[in-house]
Design a protein around this nucleic acid. Structure first.
Length: 135
RNA sequence: CAAGACAGCCAGACUAUCGCAGACCGCAAGGUAUGAGGAAAGUCCGAGCAUCACAAGGCAGAGUGCCGGCUAAUUACCGGUCAAGGCGACUUGAAGGAAAGUGCAACAGAAAUAGACCGCCUAUAUUUUAUAGGUAAGGAUGGAAAGGCGGAGUAAGAGCCCACCGUCUUUGAGGUAACUCGAAGAGCCAUGUAAACCCCAUUUGAUGCAAGAGAACGCGACGCAUAGGUAGCCUGCCUGUCGCAAAAUCGCUUGAACGCAACGGUAACGUUGCGUCUAGACAGAUGAUAGUCCAAUACAGAACUCGGCUUAUAGACUGUCUUGCUAA
RNA sequence: GUUUUCGUAGUUCAAUGGAUAGAAUAAGCCCCUCCUAAGGGCUAGAUUCGGGUUCGACUCCCGGCGGGAACA
């Protein structure tokens, strides 16, 4: 994920926490809100997920990889925070990618239909894709 | 063959597509090579480096404590001595001083740093036995009982005397030394504990890269000593001080570096030669997918940098040695 | 990242190197009561782990494990 998409400012983080809309499932929490910056995303993996740095790094890298593939299809006016919950420590990439897309669709943030080759690469299930609606 | 002891080594590899970090090349598009560990961990020791005055003197406090070597440095590494444990290979050890002083040693036991409960012997009285004295060989208690064991000696006993062992003093030989092996003499008087206080020797200023440096710089408070300057106290030295708000650069990776070879050394390690440049972020870089080989990946992620120690660790592999059994 | 402190019954706390590790409360059983509560009696339950020093360790020393606190 390129540097321009990274959320670095601590003030924006606390702003999103305070004002943003949040949606959650068993694995992840997605917080989003519009701000003065174009599309940016931050990832939070706390010690609650796992006490070992190796596992937390792996979870964060998988989240970033899954999010990177979906950037072209997202609304670019919003800022995002993805928070990992405890189930992420044991999940594989396929499960993380599916639940991330599930949250994005649930929050109604998809701007375009996802292409087949991307869906195949992320191993997105058809049942998740079917729920997508467009304005 | 079985059971062990010690030492060492590896820590998956490769291919394709997409993606990240800093570096280099390029006007740009883009391209090129490189990119976590043996413990990166714990922060238990030792240094470098930085600031506090160029950290100086004294007290207090703290660490260390057999000998030699190695090192930038260490009590922690290497080799040895001694002690303890093990049939053995081998392992473990903060291992100076108890004859400077103080404290403590529960319970048991007659008595715990000095001693007569039972016993033994002698004397007196005497039916049993009692009283007085001698005696530490025997019993009983204890972690520890007054050097051990044997002889001589005695009323019974006793280092009272003798031999051997132990202890101390003097001394000879070996060893760099700790110490070892002897000889002579003395004396058997003085228990243990210093990871109790302590004594002796020796080391030690504090704080840590969020240290700090330079540049830039907003607001507020106090006003020259009864204050502050990162040391518990004293001496000494220096100085305008404090609080709040908010960012970037440097420090930041060529280093007591790593690899290979030769030489010296039992080893830790050292010397020389050749070669290499090998993460440097700041919301914090190694991932995703597919495939091949394979018996198969455990513990686990750099944040100023090194040397050691400790702890976690799947699956193996290599070498040397010990004990037992069997066979030749 | 740096510094620092603590660990004793289920819980809250005691214990000078020498106890069978003590108290309160909670738990279980019994008594009391028509029943419950209160009260009385009895029972079981612990030194974070591994080494060392010592005749003897909750206590002293070393190392590990786990928790808390401070700085920022």
């Amino acid at each position: 994920m390129q540097k321009k998409y990274r959320l670095k400012n601590g003030r924006v983080f606390s702003y999103l926490h305070r004002k943003g809309e949040s949606n959650a499932n068993k694995m992840l929490v997605l917080v989003h809100a519009p701000s003065k910056y174009p599309l940016k995303a931050g990832f939070i993996v706390s010690k609650k997920v796992d006490n070992r740095a190796v596992i937390r790094n792996k979870v964060r890298r998988r989240l970033r990889e899954a999010f990177r593939a979906l950037i072209p299809y997202l609304k670019d006016s919003e800022n995002y925070i993805v928070i990992a919950r405890e189930a992420c420590g044991k999940a594989n990439f396929e499960e993380i990618a599916n639940s991330l897309l599930h949250l994005i669709i649930k929050s109604n943030l998809l701007a375009a239909r996802i292409d087949d080759d991307v869906a195949q690469r992320l191993k997105i299930k058809q049942s998740v894709l079917d729920k997508a609606k467009f304005d």
